[in-house]
């Protein structure tokens, strides 16, 4: 069920990328897609009734959630940040040159 919600979020992001005409909205759509995936990744590592994977006294035999996905998602979030930052800066520059945020009007390269 929770996986389906992730997919739903992904589809919402995809919708934004596909349908929205504004560069910034496209970027937001992309970010939503990315976060849906991060969520998905983190959820994969979840174990029923698990706790944080820190070994402390008295919890040696407890059920831990898988720590690996969490580490990976942290890395991926950083990468996602870089991507978003670059995209936004590109969008700003595009607005300076093209004078618009409308993706339909930014089509000098074709054919």
């Amino acid at each position: 069920m929770i996986y389906l919600l992730c997919v739903l979020l992904l589809l919402i992001g995809l919708y934004g990328v596909l349908v929205k005409k504004n560069l910034i909205k496209i970027i937001i759509g992309l970010s939503i897609m990315e976060y849906a995936l991060f969520l998905f990744f983190a959820v994969i590592g979840y174990r029923e009734g698990g706790t944080a994977p820190i070994i402390t006294k008295g919890f040696e035999k407890a059920v831990f959630v898988d720590p690996l996905p969490q580490a990976l998602v942290l890395t991926a979030i950083v990468i996602g940040l870089a991507v978003t930052a670059l995209l936004v800066s590109l969008a700003v520059r595009i607005y300076e040159k093209h004078g618009t945020f409308d993706i339909r009007k930014i089509r000098r390269l074709k054919g």
Binding site: L14, V17, L18, V19, I26, I103, R104, I106, R107, R108, L109, K110, G111
Partner: peptide
């Protein structure tokens, strides 16, 4: 082929999908 390469990002995305 040249005609369908419209330069529109959504079009390209639709191809991908």
């Amino acid at each position: 082929l040249k005609k369908i390469h419209t330069g529109l990002l959504p079009t390209y995305l639709i191809w991908v999908l």
